[in-house]
Design a protein around this nucleic acid. Structure first.
Ligand SMILES: NC(=O)c1ccc[n+]([C@@H]2O[C@H](COP(=O)([O-])OP(=O)(O)OC[C@H]3O[C@@H](n4cnc5c(N)ncnc54)[C@H](O)[C@@H]3O)[C@@H](O)[C@H]2O)c1
Ligand SMILES: NC(=O)c1ccc[n+]([C@@H]2O[C@H](COP(=O)([O-])OP(=O)(O)OC[C@H]3O[C@@H](n4cnc5c(N)ncnc54)[C@H](O)[C@@H]3O)[C@@H](O)[C@H]2O)c1
Lengths: 207, 207
DNA sequence: CTAATCTTGTGAAATGATTCACAAGCCCCG
DNA sequence: CGGGGCTTGTGAATCATTTCACAAGATTAG
């Protein structure tokens, strides 16, 4: 498959949200123009995004809402369950562990780890926090598709190295630090402080 | 000023992190090549990014670490204090309110609001959670540059409307929903579920 | 059945971002 | 003080993404 731009994948994911909303409202079909309006883009962009993966619409009618939703879920890899492990059960890690929106999308948090004895053994929505020293040995059995990292910045790289060595291929990092990963491992970062700074720039430059 | 790409602003913000790290280590100068290595980009990219704002380096030597850091802070609008109000003091809102990294960057959380009587009156690191019904009246005096929204998705748009009406120009939204804002108001969203889905796609398509 | 109306799918054009490549400036050594 | 070695700053070239524009298929009304 030809390489798909991240911007396209991001929009597909948004289209899916809108489609699921429309599905609940009972809509049967939707046009690229409607999707564009909901998503703040243009109808040509919507059609181009979809065209990378095939042609799912009917000229004159638009797209079948349930069929397109299913197809996008398939494209994004959301038709399966994803096993997720959280490392770092502090404020961010605990929020992630308890977030219901993940489970709705079949991202199942199967374990959480921390280094702090005060946290180990506590329960987050039924997930008992384990000692990070057992992480490496546990990973074999847990076999997570994705690991979320919510530890302090200086602890993040060692965790990456450990989970990558155990065969984990996907990492979502919340620590504000750059991470090195071996080939074949995908790491993405959510950096809230960075987003604030980009916002500060936008407000400052807008004068 | 000519329009600057978001990708450029994002990189500038990262360069600043590295510069501050180097500054602590006592480095006096740094080359575009060093910055590129730290940031996972190319030296040409670094120089191009900086060139939009002027020329700060010395041929043959590189950039003065403290001078460049200061200049980037100035560009990003980080030389001032930013007053920040948080709406929604749930798990995410509480994590944000207690995060020390924001204060280090002079993003000062001056108030937090919630709708839940059980939360109102509780204290988050010295910030007492207030009743959201007083938000509109309070905003005048609080005069925040930025509002962080951490309420459930269906509550987000009304909050946006209210704070925008009160004159707030910058919003960072954590709810997984599209938001409409009047002209002149900048809204950015941090959507963790979306990031997970993009990661799922990358893992699925990499086969 | 025909005409008018929609809406998709997609090459081609336009716009935007990154990479290349190198002249020019600066430093340091001898 | 001259030459070699670095490193910046920046047009030009390349690569990527978005927008345009329209033929072609589908639907609806009469
Ligand atoms: N709180 C926020 O709103 C916020 C915002 C932006 C970024 N962040 C970043 O997110 C990360 C987590 O932030 P937080 O506020 O949850 O911090 P926190 O201190 O509440 O939680 C971090 C947790 O990681 C644990 N930990 C430390 N080393 C570990 C290791 N080696 N293995 C396992 N667990 C370990 C600690 O015991 C702690 O419980 C940090 O990198 C922070 O910079 C947080
Ligand atoms: N927890 C996570 O890890 C996570 C991950 C991704 C996205 N999110 C999103 O972030 C947002 C917050 O999530 P959370 O986990 O903190 O939820 P939460 O339920 O813990 O917190 C939401 C808070 O908002 C308050 N609230 C509701 N309506 C309000 C109003 N009108 N004004 C003021 N406060 C109001 C509630 O009382 C509650 O305390 C949600 O939109 C959620 O979808 C959370």
């Amino acid at each position: 498959m030809k390489h798909i731009a991240e911007s396209t994948v991001r929009r597909l994911s948004r289209y899916l949200r809108f489609l699921e909303g429309e599905e609940e409202l009972g809509a049967e079909t939707i046009s690229s123009d409607d999707l564009a309006t909901l998503g703040g883009t243009t109808s040509a962009q919507v059609r181009k995004d979809l065209s990378f993966f095939g042609s799912f619409g009917t000229r004159g009618r638009g797209y079948s809402v349930p069929a397109l939703a299913r197809r996008i879920r398939e494209i994004l890899g959301l038709e399966r369950e994803w096993r997720v492990v959280i490392v770092g059960a502090g404020r961010v890690g605990a929020a992630l562990a308890q977030y219901r929106g993940f489970r709705e999308r079949r991202f199942n948090v199967v374990a959480a780890y921390d280094a702090d004895p005060a946290r180990i053994g506590t329960s987050l929505n039924g997930i008992v926090v384990r000692d990070q020293r057992t992480l490496d040995a546990d990973l074999q059995a847990l076999n997570p598709g994705i690991v979320l990292i919510a530890v302090p910045p200086e602890a993040a790289q060692p965790i990456v190295d450990r989970v990558a060595r155990a065969g984990v291929r996907g990492i979502l990092n919340f620590a504000p630090t750059a991470l090195r990963v071996p080939d074949g491992v995908v790491v993405r970062s959510v950096d809230m402080a960075l987003e604030l700074e980009i916002l500060a720039y936008a407000l400052t430059a807008a004068k």
